[in-house]
């Protein structure tokens, strides 16, 4: 009994630690005050300011299209790479898999400056190209790592069977292989989106000068000491927290339902 109470207490304390900053911001986003800790009654004024702030709206838009573009491209490149590596000889597959680990293990600042060194030698330094490539370097290996296990689980005979039955290699690929590894592709894509949305350091070293994502904008706002003078940012953070928590809970609870059904059989 004591053990049980202690267990629950530990969980609650850690959850409070994890969620108290988020909760604080969400609560104080619903009042019209410059500072957190000063409650001026319930109000949606900050949200009004937020949606009228063209700059923040553009940054929000930038962040989302960057994540979608980087995740989409990474998913195509990483999936193709995974299939290619899976059917290649060890001599080819091994070094490719080893190099794939570099961006995964490497410190982000090192990845960032390495790309800055490369792009500074070209005309593409600090362009949308370098920015998207930077995000792809972060995301693609994770797509590969999500797809690889699905390829290994696949029955290798199905591809051969499709060819025997008259399918062309590309038909066999799109109608037989891809559907079987699709769940891996989807999780690679989702993971890429969250990695891209979360990134600060690589973005800071590869982005065009006047381009900002939420990460770079908020970091610079803190740096320039304008954080507290733009309460609209508080509404933005609160909104992102709420939206993300709802989306993530929905995805994960839905994903668990079939599994739960299976286990009750």
């Amino acid at each position: 009994m004591v053990k049980r109470i202690l267990s629950i207490a530990i969980c609650i304390v850690v959850l409070i630690f994890v969620y108290s900053p988020i909760l604080l911001l969400v609560v104080y986003s619903f009042t019209d005050s410059k500072m957190i800790g000063q409650w001026n009654g319930l109000s949606l004024a900050l949200y009004g300011q937020l949606f009228r702030d063209e700059r923040i709206m553009r940054i929000l838009f930038n962040t989302v299209w960057l994540a979608l573009a980087a995740a989409g491209l990474s998913t195509v490149l990483g999936t193709a790479g995974a299939i290619g590596i899976f059917y290649s000889r060890r001599r080819v597959a091994k070094p490719l898999l080893a190099v794939s680990q570099i961006p995964v293990i490497n410190a982000e600042i090192v990845t960032a400056i390495a790309l800055a060194l490369l792009f500074s030698m070209t005309l593409l330094y600090r362009t949308y190209f370098s920015l998207i490539v930077g995000h792809m370097v972060l995301c693609t290996p994770f797509v590969l790592l999500s797809v690889m296990p699905k390829l290994k689980q696949m029955d290798p005979n199905t591809y051969e069977a499709a060819l025997d039955l008259g399918a062309s290699p590309s038909q066999a690929l799109f109608k037989v292989v891809i559907p079987q590894i699709f769940s891996g592709i989807v999780s690679g894509f989702m993971l890429s989106i969250t990695l891209s949305l979360d990134d600060y350091i690589v973005t800071a070293f590869t982005k065009p000068k006047l381009f900002d994502t939420i990460s770079t904008y908020v970091y610079n706002a803190v740096k320039n000491g304008t954080n507290s003078s733009t309460p609209a940012l508080r509404a933005l953070s609160a909104l992102i927290f709420i939206v993300m928590i709802v989306i993530l809970l929905m995805i994960n609870l839905r994903a668990q339902k079939p599994a739960a059904k299976r286990s009750t059989k």
């Binding site: 900053p21 988020i22 939420i214 908020v218 927290f241």
Partner: peptide, 12 residues
């Protein structure tokens, strides 16, 4: 969830 936003929330 974006870590810059979470860290800024913690800062507050």
């Amino acid at each position: 969830i974006n870590f810059v936003l979470r860290i800024t929330a913690l800062r507050e």
